[in-house]
Structure formats: structure tokens, C-alpha cells
Amino acid sequence: MSKYLVLIFQDEVATKEVAGETVSADYQAFMQRRGRSLLGGAALEPAETATSIRRDGSGGFSVTDGPFAESKETLGGYYLIEAADLDEALEIAKEVPAGAGVEVRPVRVAS
């Protein structure tokens, strides 16, 4: 079995109103259905609450308001899942009721 991080992207402008409430019925259904494959996960506060820290190259940091990469779709949450292979991981990821879509990244295994 392999682990994958499913990064959930959403268009914040479009989904603003929904934020804050309890977990939506869609997500509850998803977690019920795929519970055995889910190792963890969380929803995140909107990107406007993000703080980014960049190394300035001389030992210090520059701290800025906002997400690390500016884009229309922002990271809204994640799941850590376990799957036999990429095909199964993609199958699970397709069921995530995300707004814009998801990115599936294999978790690196120490060799």
C-alpha cells in the first residue's frame, strides 16, 4: 500500500458563503464511503488567513501575508489516503466533493 496526499483546491470567491459551517453532507458521505482509505485530513481556513515565510538566502526570513503561490484556486483542505496504487488513489480522489479539483501527490517513502 502507498500513501498519497490529496490536496483540495477551491475557488474561494465562489465558495466563500459555505465556509465556517459544519462539514457538508457531501464530505460526510465521502468520508463514510472511503473511511478505510483515509488516514487523516482537514479543512483549512481561507487563504486570506495564510502567512508565508520565505528564506531570504542570508539566514533570515521574510514574512508576508497571503498564500505561498498566488492563484485563483487555493488550497482548501487535504486528505492523507492509503491506496494500492495510483489508479486506486485517483479513483478515491475523484470522489472528493471538492470545488475546483484536487491534486494527488505520492508521499515519499524513505529508502
Binding site: 498519497y4 494500492a84 496504487d85 489508479d87 494527488v104 505520492p106
Partner: peptide, 11 residues
């Protein structure tokens, strides 16, 4: 290798 793309005929 890293993403475990399977070596099999799809379902």
C-alpha cells in the same frame, strides 16, 4: 515508480 503507476490492465 514514485506515484506507483500500476503495471496492469485497467478494470
Amino acid at each position: 515508480a514514485a506515484a506507483h503507476i500500476p503495471y496492469r490492465v485497467p478494470a
